[in-house]
Design a protein around this nucleic acid. Structure first.
Lengths: 198, 198
DNA sequence: TAAATATACGGAGCATTGTTCCGTTTGTCA
DNA sequence: TGACAAACGGAACAATGCTCCGTATATTTA
């Protein structure tokens, strides 16, 4: 069911060796440039760092967003996978939710400029928005449901809204030492809490 | 102390009539374009709408940010002025804070793309960021202080963080029907509340 | 009123960026 | 080894913020 490259075998033609090499080189170069110059770094810079022409970048990643997505896919998947794990290992669903959100915030806050690029209609980078949300909203929804069932939070919170809200709060958290995104997110989560008396 | 134009009279040379006319024309055109195409509309579009050359725009408003700022200055001032008024007329400081934040959110949410442009380091539009925050943070701080003194909210909330957080939550609120920024802001304010028992 | 001057105008042009196109190079396979 | 598809490189295009400077015009002055 899988060929030598580990890809599913539906008539997907095997790539040339130089192509595979370049793809990896590009991913590494992009990751490096994103760390130093932020996610909005010019495509040309990444091509230069990889020692490759611009055309090559665009054959492998048809769009800036595709490249960004490829670079961070692993971490998004890890975050998605952490949801159920936390739910199983935490004392209460609310604790699991809190820790999971922390994970997400850590991820966004350390990636210079990533949060800003997650919005819809960002000049064609909708692909990023769609991937992040499609992947994480269901996980978040499950955590919310569990916490709501346990009566720990208000039951009417929408997972999509929460993810967008948290993502938005993280925008510009780097390059502004005065602004503490984590703190604001904690506040938001606090607002979610169900006052038993209410 | 004021000349015919109503400006303070410190050796500020009187502008030519066509210059004053064009400045107003540009402000009107910019406001109109911002409504239909958003705050990120190309400068050329605004120049075209106003029927003037690009050079003219840049003489009056050296930077995109200056133009945006000039268009919305009145509303920012109104928002700033509303703070003390609400504090005086509301039942409790917390109610005043809530209403004031509502005002701010209404303002941001109806201006297509404004919230996104409020961040620092936005490719040189720091002027916008600085103006908004300098003008509104003190007002917000006063409301927070009053509410904290009344014991209605936790006492450690920073006005700057709150303004940035609220602004961030409003980013992309238009062009995404699924996302309800007002709701998230309400949640944030709820999180601010002091549990008397805590 | 007519020249002189300062002020303002218009838009070509520069720099930056995402993206496309296509002639050239290179792996792969028979 | 030769043929050919696959991949490469980078010139070139379009959009956009902004600068520069020759031209036009409002205002002042004689």
């Amino acid at each position: 069911m899988a060929d030598i490259d580990g890809r599913a075998g539906h008539a997907a033609p095997r790539k040339r060796a130089d192509a595979r090499r370049n793809e990896q080189t590009l991913l590494d170069a992009a990751a490096a440039v994103f760390v130093t110059s932020g996610v909005e770094a010019p495509v040309r810079d990444i091509a230069a760092k990889a020692g490759v022409g611009i055309g090559t970048i665009y054959r492998h990643f048809p769009t800036r967003a595709d490249l960004i997505l490829a670079v961070y896919r692993h971490q998004v998947e890890a975050c998605a996978a952490a949801g159920p794990a936390l739910l199983a290992s935490s004392a209460t669903p609310h604790a699991a939710l809190g820790r999971w959100i922390d994970l997400f915030v850590d991820f966004l806050a350390t990636k210079h400029g990533l949060a800003a690029v997650l919005q819809p209609d960002n000049a064609g980078s909708d692909a990023l928005h769609a991937y992040f949300l499609d992947r994480l909203v269901p996980v978040c929804a499950r955590l919310l449901d569990a916490a709501a069932e346990a009566g720990e939070i208000r039951p009417d919170m929408d997972a999509y809204d929460l993810m967008r809200g948290v993502g938005n709060l993280c925008i510009g958290a780097d390059n502004d030492p005065r602004y503490d995104a984590r703190r604001m997110v904690r506040l938001l989560i606090a607002g979610l809490r169900q006052s038993r008396s209410t």
